[in-house]
Simulated scan of single mutants.
Amino acid sequence: MSDVPRPGLHSERTRLAWVRTAVTMAGSGMVMAGLAVRHDLPGLAAPFAAAALAGAVLLLRTGIRHRRLERALRYGHPLDHRLDGRTVWAGALAVAAAALVLVLMLAV
């Protein structure tokens, strides 16, 4: 155990939430890209693949972000999550747009 007191487990809960978000985005993006290709809609595979890539990037950055968060909590430094927030936003937007187009194309 560390000699430095910790304010609580909120950083661990936050890290786990980011991991769940990243895994969900990566996994659902890969599944939907595969479905788009199987339904002969390769143009829709690209946005779903972009969402999967965004999830993979977030998953890789989770460890780095957690270490920075722990350091910020210990030493009182501010922490910037803008890049990760933008990555999640771009991945979620890609999924939403591609899912809408996919549903509209399958309904016709």
Rank of each mutant, 00 (worst) to 15 (best):
I64Q: 15
R74N: 08
G85S: 08
R82G: 05
V31E: 08
A56E: 06
V4R: 14
F48S: 05
L100R: 12
A92R: 08
R74Q: 12
A107G: 08
L53Y: 03
T14N: 06
F48M: 05
G27N: 07
L73C: 02
R71A: 13
A92P: 02
S2M: 04
E70G: 07
A45D: 07
A99P: 04
G8Q: 00
D40S: 10
W89C: 11
F48K: 06
L102G: 09
L106S: 11
R65W: 14
L53N: 05
R13A: 15
L93I: 13
M32V: 03
H66E: 11
H10N: 11
L53T: 10
A45V: 01
G91E: 05
D3M: 11
I64V: 12
F48E: 10
E70K: 12
L73K: 07
V103L: 12
A45K: 02
Y75I: 06
R15S: 14
G55C: 00
A92T: 14
R74E: 11
V37A: 11
G91H: 03
M25E: 10
L93H: 01
A98D: 04
G27K: 07
R20I: 12
G91S: 04
A46M: 12
P47S: 05
H81Q: 09
G8N: 04
Y75D: 15
G43H: 09
G76Y: 00
E70M: 09
A33E: 08
T62W: 04
A99N: 03
S28P: 00
L59T: 00
V31H: 05
E12T: 14
A56P: 03
V4N: 08
L53R: 12
A51K: 01
L53E: 05
G76K: 09
L58Y: 03
P78T: 06
A36G: 04
A45C: 00
T62E: 13
R67H: 10
V88W: 06
D80L: 01
R67K: 07
M1N: 12
L79T: 09
V57W: 07
D40A: 13
A99W: 03
R74D: 13
V23A: 11
V31D: 06
